[in-house]
Amino acid sequence: MNDKVIETDELTKKFGSFTAVDKISFSIEKGEIFGFLGANGAGKTTAMKMLCGLSKPTSGKAKVGGFDVYTQTESIKKNIGYMSQKFSLYEDLNIMENITFYGGIYGLSSKEIKMRGEALVEKLGLKNETKKMVASLPLGWKQKLAFSVAILHEPKIVFLDEPTGGVDPVTRRQFWNLIYEAAQRGITVFLTTHYMDEAEYCDRISIMVDGRIDAIGTPGQLREAFKATNMDEVFYSLARGAKRSE
């Protein structure tokens, strides 16, 4: 197997006559931080669902972690982590219970869960808080914890759907330090964000417009290609041409 962790070839999803995702082709390498951008309604969520093995494509090909999105969805699910702002941890379980629960779901042994769980709370500085209900944690901690839990099983890829929404600028930057660390360990990071400064923190980004990927490259390459001084301008010049109303 090569080092391509995600590979798609004309991946398409139609709902009736509506083409939500329109022949997208791209590949992502091991350890890359990949920003998946686009306006609301451009098709990002549908594309992500197919890559996570949750939605069957209409046509095209895709492999995630070496597994086929049509036939090996269970293997895909075991090899990825997922975190979003809306769905992450159970509020009514305490920190350690959440770790144990997700560790179990991801198929870790109780010994591994104990070991990795302890290392995790130590690293996040939550060692004395393990019996605290997740509901009582500040949002910034919740998000850092949710991310760490999503990679507890050392997946090949972690999908992050707007992971930093609503947190203060300092916490947002701390969160990014966790992302960098994970990427350096070889975990591929696939994320969406509405913060254009975060697009700059990615190794490469793609911008979806009306179901298509209209631009892909390093932030520097895109700025140059669109003669823009920042990612905001790149985004505007692409999304302005969108036909799909939102």
């Binding site: 686009g38 306006a39 609301n40 707007e162 929404g165 609503g166 509405h194 254009m196 905001d232 985004f235 505007y236 999304a239 302005r240 969108a242 939102e246």
Partner: peptide
């Protein structure tokens, strides 16, 4: 504008 893309926010 939370969770809204930059173009719609503008």
């Amino acid at each position: 504008t939370t969770g809204v893309d930059p173009v719609s926010r503008k």
